[in-house]
Amino acid sequence: MSDTARIHPTAVVDPAARLGEGVSVGAFTWIGAEVEIGDGCEIGPHCSFHGPTRIGRDNRFVGHAAVGGEPQDKKFAGERTELVIGDRNVFREFVTLNRGTGGGGGITRIGDDNWLLAYTHVAHDCIVGNHCIFSNNTTLAGHVTVGDWVIISGFAGAHQFCRIGDHAFLAMGALANGDVTPFTMIGGNSLGRPRGINSEGLKRRGFSPERIAAIKRAYRTLFVAGLPLAEAREQLAQQAQDSEDVRLLLDFIDGGERPLLR
């Protein structure tokens, strides 16, 4: 344990845990064995950290977070699995993050620069990218994959094994029971459906009008034209010759096991 770690007198830290430089630990927090917490992390009160868990630097856990707990999977038999968290993430009140399962790859992974707001749940074997925002009560079931720059609104979530592509947006209360393509907005009110592209988000991230126009054209081909998926894919392959963004969309379509949310 670093000599510069600041630990509240009521906190309990296992001797086998490793805390980096400048880590602060709030009141009544519990940190177990095989937990590694990187430099500069700030941990609020009443949190729990179970290992094996590896956490990068400059993360903030506001309070009452449950990190690295056993997966909520009846098939889990105590095998060694992990939770791995990157850098500069914010985890608000009552966030729950579970470790992976032996049958699902063994690791739950969260990238860098994400905001997970109150009561967010990330289940076993999920993979979350970078720069995502999960609003209050976002729920990811097991084995969900989330790309970069994804926004999930309050009380929304995803079914097991679903994928959510880069720059997607899920509206309040949207439930994804299929793969959500990159750049796509999913409407709320229970089972979500595509409602256009996330053009405002793309503008904020510096996408040019030409790039956004190409993405809109691809969206119309896939979701509006009424084409069978195989035929839409052929047209997208032509469009992808002039657009890396459409190529990303096409690669996403070809890479999944679950049906597209269409």
Rank of each mutant, 00 (worst) to 15 (best):
R109P: 02
G111T: 09
D112M: 14
D113G: 12
D113H: 15
D113W: 06
N114V: 08
W115F: 14
W115Q: 13
W115K: 10
L116E: 05
L116N: 10
A118F: 13
A118P: 04
A118E: 15
Y119P: 03
T120K: 01
H121I: 06
H121G: 08
V122N: 11
H124D: 06
C126T: 07
C126V: 03
C126M: 06
I127Q: 09
V128C: 10
N130W: 00
C132K: 05
C132F: 06
F134R: 00
F134P: 03
S135G: 00
S135Q: 11
N137A: 13
T138V: 15
T139E: 12
T139N: 11
A141F: 07
G142P: 04
G142V: 05
V144Q: 12
V146Y: 07
V146I: 15
I151W: 12
I152E: 10
I152H: 06
I152P: 01
G154E: 08
F155P: 00
A156P: 08
H159Q: 11
Q160C: 07
F161C: 04
C162Y: 01
C162A: 11
R163A: 11
R163L: 03
I164E: 10
I164S: 09
G165M: 10
D166F: 01
F169L: 13
F169N: 11
F169S: 04
L170N: 08
A171C: 12
M172I: 14
G173D: 11
A174L: 05
A174I: 08
L175R: 14
G178W: 08
D179H: 09
V180S: 03
T181I: 14
P182R: 06
P182N: 13
F183Q: 09
F183G: 01
I186F: 12
I186M: 14
G187W: 04
N189G: 12
N189R: 15
N189Q: 13
N189S: 14
L191A: 15
L191S: 13
G192F: 12
R193A: 14
R193S: 14
R193P: 02
P194L: 11
P194I: 13
N198Q: 09
N198S: 09
N198R: 10
S199P: 00
G201M: 07
G201Y: 14
R204Q: 13
F207S: 04
I215S: 03
R220W: 09
R220L: 05
L222S: 05
F223Q: 07
F223H: 15
V224A: 13
G226L: 11
L227W: 04
L227T: 02
L229T: 00
L229S: 00
A230D: 02
E231G: 00
A232T: 03
E234Q: 12
E234D: 13
A237T: 01
Q238F: 01
Q239V: 00
A240C: 03
